[in-house]
Design a binder for these strands. Structure first.
Lengths: 97, 97
DNA sequence: ATTGACTTGTCACTAATTGTCAAATGTAGT
DNA sequence: ACTACATTTGACAATTAGTGACAAGTCAAT
């Protein structure tokens, strides 16, 4: 099945909980416009905000962090024909550390 | 075997060809100090410079590009306990595009 | 002690990111 | 259509990260 990106994930979770953007924004102490942009992928959340979101949305912080980090990698590689090789190589290098 | 990072790779190739930093710097039209930092991983090369380096060092551009991109991912994930999960998730997402 | 290769620290400049605000758009309900 | 509220958009300011140059430094060989 198709994997969700970070914005889609937090939007789905927010709606499931019946929260408004304004409420999430208040909890993170940012402007409503910004969380709107984050949900639509126009801006990236900061790492600290991912933790706050996980708590607010009552999901596992690590799961959400995986999606958030994964967004960065997809950004980096989506235009790269070599993406698969890069991931393989990175995996090796991260292992033998 | 242990995987080389970008800096180690270009240093090894440069030394194999008997080139001086100053010569590589001239070819890339940058300061010698900068290429020194790139080899030691203190700075990152730009994408354009990777191409020039591959040509100068007579290696496959794509191979070098893989190492260079991989550096970025290692940077992003090396302090992350979740690295493996992130790579797996990213792989999936890059596939079903 | 001079030379040549490389390294290090600092600074200036630029580019990218993050955030806010105000205005615009969308969506129900009356 | 009018209101009220939620969300989005665009423009801009503020912050932060990246890029590169320069000058001074170390190190090894002679």
């Amino acid at each position: 099945m198709k994997q969700e990106n970070f914005g889609e994930t937090i939007r789905r979770l927010r709606e499931k909980k019946g929260l408004l953007l304004r409420q999430v924004a208040a909890a993170l102490e940012i402007d409503t416009a910004l969380i709107s942009k984050i949900e639509r992928g126009e801006r990236k959340a900061q790492k600290e905000q991912v933790g706050k979101l996980a708590e607010l949305l009552e999901v596992n912080t690590e799961e959400l962090m995986v999606t958030w980090l994964s967004d960065k990698i997809v950004d980096l590689l989506e235009e790269e024909p070599l993406a698969h090789k890069v991931l393989k190589n990175s995996g090796k290098r991260l292992k033998d550390k």
